[in-house]
Design a protein around this nucleic acid. Structure first.
Lengths: 224, 224
DNA sequence: CGCATAGTTCGGTCTCCATCGAAGCATTCT
DNA sequence: AGAATGCTTCGATGGAGACCGAACTATGCG
């Protein structure tokens, strides 16, 4: 019988299938309304609402009210990281699907992780940016290198304005088991990729699929 | 309604207080018997046994039978990492204890994480070993540097024999939010620390407390 | 062989909580 | 103001599972 942080409380919040589906959906990064989440989880609206208030009370979600809409989102990167960790274990011990579906492979290559890009592409990108000294890495902490400002502004990303939230952060990838780039810069890069239509988001999935020319453009800019 | 790895199943295993206590106890690294775990969790033996078989079925534990004793242990570093991640969130969102107890501080300084050392001391150690090029770090992957063999054999740790399991691994520390050293080398160093009596394990806790001379010795060897 | 210890299985009880329909509140549109 | 939409609260129901005592199995000891 020990005290310490109440891990059972947090885990049991994730431990209900309906709530797990909601959290999974929110891993897509965009905040969703209660009705969307109800649909996602396959439960009625009242049930979803009850789950959402529990998740709120547990501190796993944030709420942004806009008019008559109420948008729920993940509370932060730490929560996203925890879900990735659980996903990793579930993946490892779970029933090995004999033939991984095509979407499964797409998820490994590139997917949305909270608000930034994850998967093989994202890991390769961070490696390359560090190798070129555009970013300076010190364990979990990532700082901007001297050439970062000019490099990113050339492609329309402003790293000058320093928001409170760290610009860069390392985030552990559950499929590759190596870090990729999170933080506002990671988010900005994902925005860029989608805005330029280099890639599109798979419907109802976290997968991100690059078009052939989009992939070339991405590699030219980030993997050169 | 999505498919994917069944994260609710895994999370709900951790989500029961009795099972969470058991897992927490096993984070100490040593395998324990069913009766010890029952005591730890504060439940009767039959109840504990039922929980243990669920955890086994879920793939979170391994079992080693020795005579009439059956030792349960964590299934691997990935499971340990997941529990650390959940602990981190619970710590962050949980009710902030007004005055953190003394043991709480000790846990931050040094504690056992599965089979190796974690906490400020451990993070500092890895930083220093990398700075001295004794270990070479590449994201989550850590390799031995040229001087590693001689450095470690001088203090009685053999890094020559290459077991299947990686010698070194980075492991994210929930209190410091930076990596520390895991893998067989991390485990060997913890063994060394305890064998030399530089530190002792706090009873019924993961905390590791250094004696004043022990701390000096540790710093001389690893933080020089 | 009997006895003791370690552990699992069984059967039954009880509590918790996920679920939904119906009703209530709030915001926006007309 | 009135209607419509988005969401929460209430109340009732049902099912899952955590729990324990007792019986059962297995290993070790004298």
């Amino acid at each position: 019988m020990r005290e310490g942080p109440d891990i059972a409380r947090i885990a049991s919040l994730v431990g209900d299938p309906a709530r797990a589906n909601m959290l999974n959906a929110l891993m897509g990064g965009t905040a969703l309304t209660a009705s969307e989440l109800a649909l996602e989880a396959g439960v009625s609206l009242p049930t979803a609402s009850s789950h959402l208030s529990k998740l709120m009370e547990g501190g796993l979600l944030t709420l942004a009210s806009q008019g008559r809409h109420r948008y729920y989102g993940l509370a932060g990167p730490q929560v996203a990281g925890m879900i990735e960790a659980i996903t990793g274990v579930a993946e490892a011990v779970g029933p090995k699907r004999v033939r991984p579906g095509p979407r499964d492979g797409a998820m490994r290559v590139a997917r949305v992780c909270y608000d930034h890009l994850a998967g093989e592409q994202a890991v390769a990108m961070l490696d390359r940016l560090v190798a070129r000294d555009i970013l300076l890495r010190d364990d979990q902490e990532i700082r901007l290198g001297p050439s970062a400002a000019s490099h990113f502004s050339a492609i329309g990303i402003d790293v000058g304005a320093k928001p409170r939230r760290p610009v860069c952060r390392a985030c552990l990838d559950w499929s590759v088991r190596r870090s990729h780039l999170a933080g506002t810069l990671g988010a900005a890069i994902l925005d860029k990729i989608l805005a330029e239509k280099w890639a599109r988001r798979e419907k109802d999935s976290r997968a991100v699929v690059f078009s052939p020319p989009g992939k070339q453009a991405f590699e030219r800019v980030f993997l050169a």
